[in-house]
């Protein structure tokens, strides 16, 4: 993107498609999973064609998300190492959340909250895949002893809860920080947004003349 439009490229088309593949499958998994977790959410099975269809589809959608997420890991892992500036930035979190932050350390493409999201999902999603595989009927559960299945159902439920909570924070952060969503829908952010939220990243791409 050029200077005259005041825009900076943040995500390529393949990054965006990959992100939304994970996002769409995640929402489907959360809805179908919650439906089988608590009776209060059982009505969500209607979105998937009933209880049996929900049971059938959920694990297949899970495999699609897992594979897509591997793509996201490969694309984003390089930018997600936690730095000293990040830890310094974290100390200002209260002020940041209150919209009162001043003199923040310059951070790169991602702030520490985004990095925590990344690493949480790097742990949780494989855990969901593994525990889900163990309880997947009718194909795989029959190969595991019942004690292992009992641990797996609990791990699956707790991991899914943590993943949903993490994603609630992620979605809220995107809504709260104006100008962020277009990074994932259009691929670009304004230069002001980039300089304000990710100054070190902005400097880097300016230096590399990637504006």
């Amino acid at each position: 993107m050029s200077n005259k439009t005041n825009l900076v490229a943040r995500y390529s088309a393949s990054e965006r498609i990959n992100h939304w593949l994970v996002a769409i499958t995640f929402v489907m998994l959360a809805f179908s999973g919650l439906a089988l977790f608590h009776p209060a959410f059982f009505f969500l099975t209607n979105l998937f064609g009933g209880g049996s269809w929900t049971r059938i589809l959920h694990p297949f959608i899970g495999v699609v998300m897992f594979v897509s997420f591997l793509g996201l890991i490969a694309k984003f892992i390089g930018q997600n190492h936690i730095t000293k500036a990040d830890l310094e930035w974290q100390k200002h979190l209260g002020d940041i959340m209150a919209n009162k932050a001043k003199n923040l350390p310059e951070i790169g493409k991602y702030n520490i909250g985004q990095k925590y999201l990344f690493w949480s999902l790097v742990v949780i999603i494989p855990l969901l895949m593994l525990s889900g595989f163990i309880i997947w009927r009718p194909y795989f559960a029959l190969y595991f002893p019942v004690d292992i299945i009992r641990v797996a159902v609990l791990v699956h439920a707790v991991a899914a809860f943590l993943a949903i909570m993490t994603i609630i924070v992620h979605v809220y952060a995107a809504i709260w920080t104006k100008g962020s969503i277009r990074a994932m829908t259009r691929g670009t952010v304004t230069t002001a947004w980039a300089r304000h939220h990710h100054p070190a990243w902005y400097k880097e791409i300016s230096r590399e003349n990637k504006l």
Partner: peptide
């Protein structure tokens, strides 16, 4: 009403 999830087995 059974959906075949196998939770009863667990």
């Amino acid at each position: 009403n059974c959906i075949g999830c196998g939770y009863c087995i667990a």
